Simulated assay, not measured.
Amino acid sequence: MLAPNISLLLLGIACAFGKAYDLTKPLKPKGPLGVTLDYSLATAWPEPRDPKDNKVFRNWVWTSHLQFKNPVSEITDGQLWKIARDAWDEAQIDRDQYGLSDYSKPSAMTILAWGNEIILASSQKGRSSFTYEYKNTPVRETLELCQIVWREDGPGDGKTDKKHRTEGKCGELMAAHLYYSEDATITLAERNARVGTVVEKRKNLENTDPCGDPKNQGHLGL
Rank of each mutant, 00 (worst) to 15 (best):
A3K: 14
A3I: 14
N5W: 15
I6K: 13
L9G: 03
L10H: 11
L11P: 02
G12C: 01
I13P: 04
I13R: 04
I13G: 03
A14Q: 08
A16I: 04
F17P: 01
Y21T: 02
Y21C: 13
T24A: 14
L27P: 01
K30C: 10
V35R: 06
L37E: 06
L37A: 05
Y39M: 09
Y39G: 09
L41A: 03
A42K: 02
W45V: 09
P48Y: 00
P48T: 02
D50F: 09
D53G: 10
F57S: 02
F57H: 00
V61D: 00
W62E: 03
H65R: 09
N70C: 08
S73Q: 10
E74N: 11
T76I: 05
Q79K: 06
L80F: 08
L80D: 03
K82R: 07
D86F: 02
W88G: 03
D89C: 08
E90Q: 12
D94I: 00
D96L: 10
D96P: 03
P106G: 04
I111R: 08
L112G: 11
N116G: 07
N116Q: 12
N116E: 11
E117D: 13
I118Q: 14
I118G: 13
I119A: 05
I119E: 00
L120M: 14
R127S: 14
T131E: 12
T131Q: 12
T137E: 07
V139Q: 06
E141P: 04
T142A: 10
L143G: 06
E144V: 14
E144K: 15
L145D: 12
E152S: 01
E152N: 05
E152V: 01
D153A: 13
D153K: 09
P155M: 03
D157Q: 03
D157S: 02
G158E: 08
R165G: 05
T166E: 09
C170W: 06
C170V: 05
G171Y: 04
H177F: 05
L178E: 10
Y179C: 11
E182Q: 11
A184C: 01
T187K: 13
N192T: 11
V195T: 15
G196A: 09
K203P: 05
L205N: 07
E206C: 12
P210R: 08
C211E: 11
G212C: 09
P214F: 12
Q217I: 14
